[in-house]
Design a protein around this nucleic acid. Structure first.
Length: 511
RNA sequence: GGCGGAGUAGCUCAGUUGGUUAGAGCAGCGGAAUCAUAAUCCGCGUGUCGUAGGUUCGAGUCCUACCUCCGCUACCA
């Protein structure tokens, strides 16, 4: 098989806030893609991490009596714990305070300048000394700073600017040449019309902020945090493996995942930066929607967070991963709730899938002493597996993760239906039909095994347990996503419910 | 204001390039079965497809206007 390099990224998370479900959501989606592609034998590099510069962090650190570095060390660790908790398999966890990243940012900025895309200019606006930040007039109710209640002053600051305007035409050309550059199509539209509406140059430095990467030619200024942050996608490859530059191997990213609130930075400024420095553009940007609770955007300040750690504690990590991808069509907005987690967990994971494994292993235990009989998978189920394998692969490749789950679930339903249609308990009473029973039992065991392969990227905790219960190989490669891969004579080793029923739902007020 | 989305069964949503009786899951009602985590399987939906027009042999699917909700409208990230 031809091994393809596959580079996939999540945004790096701004450490000013605590990790919440929104962060976990993007990370899980990217991880499903990465795991799936590894199953397919591709050479995957999955990148996530934290964005740590900027004035906000410096101020919060000061409030807590910490140095900025101490503060971001602690916050970044919290994000790394979240990443681990959802079983993400990133190949590198980048921090923008890494020396390797900061050195790359400086080199990159110097390249932009050498290429003639950077000039010195004046940024002016309303400036609040308390916030140490510029504001737009419409963001100041009553003309006063919302945080400090003071009147901002009109300030001018000398800054270095990135000639974004020069890339309007090249960006439009790229968009028109590749209508799939940004997915879903509605976001492509949104980004393209923004570009077509005219691009202004943007300042890429700050004179008043110290917590950042100094400009190489003007160390009194620091790199604007968004430039700093976006560059992580490229910088990581240069130093993730000491002594090795992975850029040649993995650049450009096949998929970059992000939520729609940061579309403009990724779909306009980021590609312009890459063009300016002579980099190939990412192949695809996937813009997913918001998870909403009672029609309100998920956000901690609104106090309506659905706590990913609580879901993991109560239902298990696979339940969280499954739920998020199943209940909200990936790419769109969708409502979530603890009640819905509870329902999906029981109706689909426990009743459909967990119970399937349980009844299949129980019957093989009862009718064949726990030994998988020597038989062939029934053609109908074999065909369903083949169809699902193709369909799941196609959908995951396009990051249509909800559709991929649907495609895999068809087999789960088919197998439950097969149990009813063939009624093994009846066959078991008729010794003359032993061959028939062998075929049914083998089909059920083999089909359930195939489901584990199909779902392994979403259910990394449960899939290996399914395989173990069926006495199957623990290999997860996509070549196993076919019928008749379970060896006859395999010994069943059932071990309790895969997804035990949960009496008490989470929530209360959050529902 | 401008640009862009969305409005489809009680709920959550699918509905490619316009074409047979508009679909799925959940919930609800009825039934079957008993291997299983009381799980499973089968059957049951006349919905003014936001409103009013228009184009067409034919529109949820294209056009116009309007109503409602939402996002973006650039340097906190």
């Amino acid at each position: 098989m031809h091994v393809q390099p596959t580079f996939i990224t999540t945004p790096i998370y701004y450490v000013n806030a605590q990790p919440h479900l929104g962060h976990a959501y993007t990370t899980i989606a990217a991880d499903v893609y990465a795991r799936h592609m590894r199953q397919r034998g591709e050479d995957v590099f999955f990148l996530t991490g934290t964005d740590e510069h900027g004035d906000k962090n410096a101020r919060v650190a000061a409030e807590q009596g910490l140095t900025p570095q101490q503060f971001v060390d602690g916050s970044s660790a919290a994000f790394r714990r979240m990443t681990n908790a959802v079983l993400a398999t990133q190949d590198f966890f980048i921090r923008t305070t890494d020396a390797g990243h900061m050195a790359f940012v400086q080199r990159f900025l110097q390249t932009l300048k050498d290429n003639g895309h950077v000039y010195e200019g004046v940024y002016e606006g309303l400036y609040c000394t308390g916030c140490e930040a510029f504001y737009k007039e419409e963001d100041l109710p009553g003309g006063l700073c919302p945080d400090h209640g003071t009147k901002p002053e009109w300030l001018q600051e000398s800054n270095w600017f990135f000639r974004l305007s020069a890339f309007q035409e090249p960006l439009l050309a790229h968009y028109d040449a590749d209508p799939a550059f940004v997915r879903p199509a509605a976001r492509w539209n949104e980004a393209r019309s923004f570009i077509a509406g005219g691009l202004e140059d943007v300042s890429l430095s700050r004179a008043s902020i110290e917590w950042g990467v100094p400009l190489p030619w003007a160390p009194d200024q620091t790199c604007y945090v968004w430039f700093d942050a976006l560059l992580n996608y490229a910088s990581a490859l240069t130093y993730a493996r000491p002594g090795e530059d992975l850029t040649e191997r993995y650049w450009p990213p096949r998929w970059q995942l992000l939520a729609k609130d940061i579309l403009k930075f990724h779909a306009v400024i980021w590609p312009a930066m890459l063009l300016a420095a002579g980099y190939a553009l990412p192949q695809r940007l996937m813009i997913h929607g918001y998870l909403t609770v009672r029609d309100t955007k998920m956000s901690k300040s609104l106090g309506n967070v659905l706590d990913p750690f609580a879901v993991i504690d109560r239902y298990g990590v696979d339940a969280l991963r499954y739920y998020l991808l199943r209940d909200v069509r990936f790419g769109g907005d969708g409502g979530i709730s603890y009640d819905a987690v509870h329902e999906r967990y029981h109706a689909e994971l426990a009743n459909d899938l967990g119970n399937l494994l349980n009844r299949v292993t129980a019957m093989i235990g009862k009718y064949r002493d726990g030994i998988v009989p020597d038989a062939q998978c029934e053609p109908g189920i074999a065909a369903a597996i083949a169809l699902a394998s193709e369909s799941v692969a196609r959908h995951v490749h396009a990051l249509e993760l909800t559709e991929a789950l649907d495609a895999a679930w068809v087999v789960v339903r088919d197998l439950n239906r097969l149990v009813e249609d063939r009624a093994p308990w009846t066959l078991a009473k008729e010794p003359a039909r032993a061959d028939e029973l062998d075929t049914v039992l083998y089909t059920l065991a083999d089909g359930t095994r195939a489901c584990a392969i199909l779902l392994a990227a979403v259910l990394p905790d449960s899939a290996p347990r399914m395989l173990a219960a069926l006495g199957a190989s623990d290999a997860l490669d996509w070549g196993q996503a076919v019928a008749n891969a379970l060896p006859a004579g395999a010994r069943i080793a059932a071990a309790g419910p895969l997804f035990p029923r949960i009496e008490e739902p989470l929530g209360g007020d959050a529902n």
